[in-house]
Design a protein around this nucleic acid. Structure first.
Lengths: 121, 121
DNA sequence: ACCAGTACTTAGCGACGCCAAGTAGCGAAG
DNA sequence: CTTCGCTACTTGGCGTCGCTAAGTACTGGT
């Protein structure tokens, strides 16, 4: 997916990453790999790292440096209480938006321009 | 809803507006009113107008100036063939994203940290 | 010694939604 | 007749976000 997906990820990627961290703690490279495997194939690596820095500075996650056998130390992120709260808000916002959009989608599906309808009443 | 919604609307608002136009032609003020009534209560007016200019320049809509009894002439936007195509792409992208996020949501719901589980096997 | 894979960082860019203010046309109230 | 409020669109500047691109650093294999 291209530009549309890029724009859509603004605002949702944050929630996605928090949701991943809600399942279990993880580090940047790991998260990137997970997402790429789950279909976000051309997700930029730098994006995740920048996002992690942001949510750390907002105090939504706790960080721990863990040595790796295969490279530089990993920064393992864990969702904390504030992060859980923020994630809950995210689900609320997302649900609201998804519901409106689903309604719009149905409304179109159910009233295609082709279908002849009684114009009068 | 606040900042989360603002960020989420990036990329989705365009699709929302196109979907509204797919139902029937409309002008900026009208679209803004519709959206505000449908729950996007603090949607900025300028946002919609800027978006309409963009989709017009991309050739996704046709425009017609229609005089109004209550003020300046309205710019009525109609979704054209290219717009329909683009909207279809939007649904594809949105569906993909919504599905992934739904999966993430379920995965969390089904494995809450609180629930005691057999640790061994 | 070199390269590939792992893992994180940084600087700059474009796109989008918001804010604020302004322009313009019309009807009703004073 | 001026003023106010509603309708309707425009414009300039701002902050945020994801992407691009380049770099740093550590390890193991050839």
């Amino acid at each position: 997916m291209g530009k549309q997906m890029t724009e859509m990820l603004k605002g949702t990627l944050e929630g996605i990453v928090l949701a991943i961290l809600a399942a279990r703690p993880a580090y940047g490279y790991d998260i990137t790999t997970q997402l790429r495997e789950q279909g976000f194939s051309d997700l930029a690596e730098g994006t995740i790292y920048a996002l992690l820095v942001r949510i750390e500075q907002r105090g939504l996650v706790d960080v721990e440096k863990v040595p790796s056998e295969k490279g530089p130390p990993r920064k393992v992120y864990t969702l904390n209480a504030q992060g859980s709260e923020y994630l809950a808000e995210f689900w609320g916002t997302w649900s609201f938006l998804a519901e409106r959009i689903a309604q719009l989608h149905q409304r179109i599906e159910n009233s295609p321009e082709e279908t002849p309808r009684e114009e009068g009443a």
